[in-house]
Design a protein around this nucleic acid. Structure first.
Length: 211
DNA sequence: ACGGCGAATCCGTTACATCA
DNA sequence: GTGATGTAACGGATTCGCCG
């Protein structure tokens, strides 16, 4: 863990699991259903801390400011820095350690909230895009269906014409179909084939290709 | 290699201060 | 007075490095 990495962590969306690789391994007992009972702490209404002399709640704004500055430059607290900070702030090193511990917990909680918001937003965008694509697919299927119907109608009409007029008969298979790929028509060659040189009654609609 | 030990850190919780 | 919220502090568990 380098100091430069932690310095950038506030700006970047760094996953907690990357930043504190040890955290998730500690979840194992709880995940296995093992529930440990915690000892209840005694109340302390006498004004004296049970372990470290005079009780002193609420740090001053000045103390918090300096702690925040230090936390901003490095989230971890080496013992040398802890002692120096404690001396500067007139606090017990244990208090500095506790403050950093709680601050890391708040930082982690905030990052998790941000990560959640980001993922939620991405999910919503994806759902919207999915709906849009599904609508587009329906429209395209409708167009294909209409085109097929039209082809059927035209083929039926041309069959009727060719039986009366031998000169206009031709073989659809004998004519080289135009290349449609550059128009993005791959897959529709058999549906939209248009003979350019042989005029067929009722095929005026194919002029859409020249639009 | 291995186990014991202490320090550091984590999570979950409690106790208390403050405020609406 | 009271519930909600924020935070200092604690307890137990885990991890890690050191040492014999």
């Amino acid at each position: 863990m380098t100091s430069s990495m932690s310095h950038q962590a506030d700006q970047q969306m760094v996953l907690i699991s990357q930043y504190y690789p040890g955290i998730y391994s500690q979840l194992a007992p709880a995940e296995q259903g093992e529930v440990k009972s915690r000892r209840r702490r005694k109340k302390n209404r006498g004004g004296e801390s049970s372990s470290s002399g005079v009780r002193k709640r609420k740090l001053s704004q000045e103390q918090v400011n300096l702690l925040e500055i230090n936390f901003g430059s490095e989230h971890k607290l080496e013992s040398e820095r802890k002692d120096r900070l404690a001396s500067e702030l007139g606090l017990d090193p244990r208090q500095v350690a506790v403050w950093f511990q709680n601050r890391r917990a708040r930082w982690k909680s905030k990052k998790l909230e941000e990560e959640y918001s980001k993922l939620k937003s991405e999910h919503e965008n994806t759902v919207v895009e999915k709906c849009r694509l599904e609508t587009e697919v329906l429209k395209l299927k409708e167009q294909v269906s209409e085109a097929e119907k039209e082809i059927h109608r035209l083929l039926e009409r041309s069959d009727g014409v060719s039986s009366n007029s031998p000169s206009s008969s031709f073989s659809m298979e004998a004519i080289e179909p135009p290349f449609l790929g550059e128009f993005g028509m791959e897959g529709f060659e058999n549906v939209f084939y248009v003979p350019e040189t042989n005029y067929v009654n009722g095929l005026e609609w194919v002029n859409i290709y020249n639009m």
